[in-house]
């Protein structure tokens, strides 16, 4: 109980003091996760839309794969990326291990299936709704895809925010490929893990509260978007 009270006091004190280390950790967390989100959105929305709209052999297997990979354990992703980026690995020459770039790669791999699977479902549902109309109007495929993506934009932003939530809260993969190096690869989740192992539970909880606030902000944005879309009957 004492730890909780101390954690809240410390969290507010840290936030109020504008602690440089804390700001650095938060900034790196956001930089890594937002960059991973950007990369995942480009790949995931593209793959999701392709699988939603196109008919090709193995489409069912692709859907199963997306859905299965949504539950990828972060430590497994971390391990795979570690093997790829380690000196003996195929991408070892780039020297990316224990850098923010490695963490971005790991998070991108982790959240791309989530974005692809959820966007596939959203785009496919809307595409089915529009399908007869588009065929009736002889809408070319590329215009049909663009129209569906545009009309599904509110839902797709929610998907992206879900991906961001997963990325920013993830610890296993970034710990393995980033190494939790102070002033280089330390992000909020790895810092929490470190402070917990050191026994500084109050600081760990304070960082957790900051993480929670970011997560809540993201969720509030998602809810606000959906509410706005529903109010305007676009969703």
């Amino acid at each position: 109980m004492h730890d909780f009270a101390e954690a809240f006091r410390l969290a507010f004190a840290l936030a109020a003091s504008g602690d440089a280390d804390l700001i650095e950790i938060i900034a790196l967390s956001l930089q890594v996760s937002l960059t991973a989100l950007l990369a995942s959105s480009v790949i995931g929305f593209g793959l999701g839309t392709l699988v939603a709209v196109a008919r090709f052999p193995g489409r069912g297997a692709a859907i199963v794969a997306f859905n299965t990979l949504m539950g990828l354990p972060p430590v497994v992703v971390g391990l795979l990326v570690y093997l790829m980026l380690s000196r003996a690995g195929p991408l070892g020459v780039f020297g990316l291990l224990y850098t923010p770039a490695a963490m971005i790669i790991a998070q991108t791999i982790l959240i791309t299936p989530i974005i692809a699977a959820l966007s596939r479902q959203i785009v496919e549902d809307l595409f089915l709704e529009y399908d007869e109309l588009f065929r009736s109007m002889s809408v070319p495929t590329h215009q049909a895809m663009a129209a569906v993506l545009w009309d599904a934009r509110f839902s797709l932003v929610t998907v992206a925010l879900a991906g961001f939530g997963r990325a920013i809260a993830e610890v296993g993969a970034v710990m393995i490929v980033g190494g939790n190096i102070d002033h280089l690869t330390r992000v909020m989740t790895t810092a929490i893990a470190l402070e917990t192992s050191k026994g500084d539970l109050a600081l760990a909880l304070a960082l957790g509260i900051v993480l929670l606030v970011i997560s809540m902000t993201v969720n509030a944005m998602a809810l606000s978007l959906r509410t706005t879309a529903a109010r305007q009957a676009y969703a």
Binding site: E132, S136, M137, D151, A152, A235
Partner: peptide
């Protein structure tokens, strides 16, 4: 041009 019994309108 075909008009459906239940109109399909874009979310716009």
């Amino acid at each position: 041009a075909l008009v459906f019994q239940k109109p399909v309108l874009l979310r716009r």
